[in-house]
Structure formats: C-alpha cells, structure tokens
Simulated assay, not measured.
Amino acid sequence: MLRGSIVALITPMDAIGAVDDAALARLVDFHVEAGTAAIVAVGTTGESATLDEAEHCAVIARCVALAAGRIPVIAGTGANATAEAIRLTRCAAEVGADAALLVTPYYNKPTQAGLIAHYRAIADAVALPQILYNVPGRTACDLLPETTAELTRVENIVGLKDATGDLTRLPRLRELCGPDFALYSGDDGTGCEFMLGGGDGVISVTNNVAPALMRQLCDAALAGERERALAINNQLADLHRALFVESNPIPVKWAMAALGLAQPGIRLPLTWLTPAHEATVRAAMQRAGAL
C-alpha cells in the first residue's frame, strides 16, 4: 500500500498550450528529491479534461520513463465513458504505470448501480491496481461509502481518493472497507485531520509547490504525532486555501511558474491566474517557505 504525500502533478505547458517535456522532467526530479511518495499523472490537476487520448497516454508514458523506478506513478485514467476509461487504463498498464486513479464518471450522473458496473468493467478489463476517486463537487456524482465497500470485493480495486472534504465519512469508510483498503484524502484543507483519523495519505495539489513540507506533514500525521502535524499544517494552511482562489489548476500553475519550474501555460477554457489574486498566492507560498 502506498502511504503518505502523493502529488497531483500539473501537466506543464508552454504559452500555446503544448505539453512542455523539459519542464515535466524537472518536476519529476523535484518530487524525487523532495521525497514525495508517488506521482499522479494526468489527473484533474494535470488537466486531463483537455488532453486528448493520445496526449493523455503520452504524458503517462513520459512520467513513467522519467521516474525510472525512482518513484511510483499513478495514472489518471478516469472518464465518463466506460470504454474510454478502459482504453486509458489499458494504456497506463502497457507503459508501466504502477496503478490507475479513476474519477467517477462526470456529467452523465450514473446511479450507484451504474458506478459499480463501470468500475467492475474497468477492473475486469485491466489487471492494473485501481484507486477510485470521488469528487462530487466537480462530477455531480457521489460514490457512497456503501458502494465503495461493495467495490472492495474486486481484487484489483485497492483504494479510494475521497475529495469530499467530509471527515465524518472516514470512520464509516474504514469500518466498511477494512484496514487493508487504502484511503487517501483529496482535499488539502482537511488532509491532516484525515490522516490523523486513520487515512493513509493525501493526493495533494499543495504538494506541487511545497513537497518537502507536505512530506513532513504526512510523516508526522501517519505516525500519530498530532501536535507536530498540526503545526506543519498551520504553516501550509494559507497555501491550501490560496491554491483554490480560482479553479484548480489555475493557481498552482501560476505558482509553479513563479518558482521557475514551469512556463506560464494552460489550456482553454481555463485561463491564467487573475492578477488580483497573485499577491494572495505569493504570500501563501512565502509563508510555506516555498518562495
């Protein structure tokens, strides 16, 4: 089981929106050196919605090649069409990804029975370890704890990223899913308490900007060192908030450009950070010691 600080990696782009391979190499090295536990490639923060299938597979393959076994790579392969999710997950397996992260189908609003059928079909088609991803604020679809528990019966469904920010779900999820099913927070603001309450780590946007400090936070929380974990989280709290002053990944891509690790590139319909918010993000980076 992967545990700890997992980065929801940006997909770096140039000014016209083309994937920046040199920047991607810098980012992978940045996380290896910082001790990040794993990389999620082409998830929500990686702008999966605006990469076509060929680009999507190419970025996953490049991350695997750049990681070169130094850090696990979890491929974002979710889609709102089951057939597309199978194709992306199969591609991730073929290029050597360690696991797949599968967001609930967005926009078409499946029932709980539909979610079970969707995830079973992907797991049956591809043997790669698979992590479910529930983010109803983006998808208009909520994967309920009881449905998650049903899916734990599928051998290669190994975990859940819960981005609801609802800490009251955690005890129920742990009770229903058992101790060996990985539970990751997908919400930086509540991630510390999630781990202190029995979660296994955080798939984090903040980790792009402050990976060493996020590693320290996760290590402390998973060791049950509440006071130390809360102190580190307090240092990061402004950054957790600032990276969502506009839709993710707008602020974090600005932050990575400010660090000199990526160019100022993003794809429509997302636009570059509004100048009025730059001071907020910069101040939060400074408080976290990232700038």
Rank of each mutant, 00 (worst) to 15 (best):
M195T: 14
G197T: 08
G197F: 11
G198C: 07
V202P: 11
N207G: 09
A210R: 08
A210F: 02
A210Y: 00
A212T: 13
A212E: 14
A212H: 05
L213A: 12
L213D: 11
Q216D: 12
C218P: 10
C218Q: 10
C218L: 07
D219A: 10
G224Q: 07
E225V: 15
R226L: 13
E227D: 15
R228W: 04
A231D: 08
I232M: 09
N234Q: 11
N234D: 14
D238L: 13
L239G: 08
H240Y: 12
H240G: 13
H240K: 09
R241G: 06
R241H: 06
R241L: 07
A242C: 11
L243Q: 00
F244S: 06
S247E: 12
N248M: 02
N248R: 05
P249E: 10
P249K: 08
I250T: 09
V252R: 01
K253E: 02
K253T: 01
W254P: 04
A255Y: 06
A258Q: 13
G260V: 04
L261F: 02
Q263V: 09
Q263C: 06
I266A: 15
P269A: 05
T271Q: 15
W272L: 13
L273F: 00
T274Y: 01
A276H: 08
H277G: 14
T280I: 11
V281P: 06
R282S: 06
A284D: 04
M285G: 05
